[in-house]
């Protein structure tokens, strides 16, 4: 657990983790977590985004939702960097279990192993999951 840090101008900066463990489209969680991250990016907070378990499917390339008339928000992940969200982590084991390789993904996210995921989660001040 890290202590929240206070900047010179008195602003508190906390380590936030947004946890994505669910696949897209079957439920709305992936989309609404993404919407939350886009807002969170406007705050001077230390934003981290983790993709593990079925959450790694959110980043799959070539999602084609036109026929279902559902929103394809997978392209929005590419915009995260422009919003200043750069600490994006994918769990290696979750990808391997699901037959995904980095080439299958819409963004070049950092891959960490399960042990590193444990350390990442354990170092957070605020964990928002859905």
């Amino acid at each position: 657990m890290s202590d929240a840090t206070e900047t010179a101008d008195g602003l508190v900066t906390k380590r936030f983790l947004y946890v994505n463990r669910k696949a897209p489209h079957g439920t709305v969680y992936a989309l609404e977590v993404l919407e939350m991250i886009l807002v969170a990016a406007m705050y001077e907070q230390d934003v981290h985004v983790a993709f593990l378990d079925d959450g790694v499917f959110q980043l799959r390339k070539n999602q084609a939702t036109e026929e279902l008339e559902m929103k394809d928000f997978s392209k929005t992940y590419r915009a995260l960097e422009d919003y200043g969200v750069e600490k994006i982590f994918l769990e290696k084991e979750s990808m391997e279990e699901r037959g995904l390789t980095p080439d299958d993904l819409v963004i070049p996210a950092a891959t960490i192993d399960r042990k590193q995921m444990t350390e990442l989660m354990d170092s957070m001040d605020v964990v928002l999951s859905a």
Binding site: M1, V19, R21, M121, M124, D125, V126, V127, S129
Partner: peptide, 8 residues
């Protein structure tokens, strides 16, 4: 326990 994580 200092911080809380929900597994949903």
């Amino acid at each position: 326990k200092q911080s809380v994580q929900s597994w949903l």
